[in-house]
């Protein structure tokens, strides 16, 4: 009651909570977030990598698109909640919706 918890107290609380979730057979969730440039957006890095592969003789590699990969360890056991949380942070920070799209995979960690 009274004052809200200080940031450090909150962090300690969250750590304890995470420990509890992690122990005693409780499974946590891991989200894999794949962020790529939208198909309509030119990818100069991907093009350069493709050019390099061609000069190495890999003519069958027709095109390369590069992107970013994130693993998020989530303190939840709920698949739906994990997906929702991962989508929220992808929308807010991990991807720029103007140029990028993302795909999420959820698994028990």
């Amino acid at each position: 009651m009274g004052h809200p918890p200080t940031p450090w107290a909150l962090r300690a609380l969250m750590r304890r909570r995470a420990d509890m979730l992690g122990g005693e057979g409780m499974r946590r969730m891991r989200a894999r977030v794949f962020v790529t440039l939208k198909p309509s957006v030119f990818d100069p890095q991907g093009r350069t990598i493709a050019d390099a592969l061609h000069s190495l003789g890999y003519d069958k590699v027709e095109d390369v698109r590069q992107g970013k990969y994130f693993e998020l360890d989530l303190a939840t056991t709920e698949m739906a909640q994990a997906r929702e949380l991962a989508a929220e942070v992808a929308d807010k920070l991990l991807a720029n919706p103007v140029i990028e799209s993302y795909r999420i995979e959820i698994a028990e960690s």
């Binding site: 440039l37 957006v41 030119f42 100069p44 890095q45 350069t48 720029n96 103007v98 140029i99």
Partner: peptide, 17 residues
């Protein structure tokens, strides 16, 4: 300004990298 949405659009790596 672009990331914050105060201006429209986004920046990509320079052509030529």
């Amino acid at each position: 300004l672009l990331e914050s949405g105060l201006l429209p659009g986004a920046m990509l790596r320079n052509r030529g990298l």
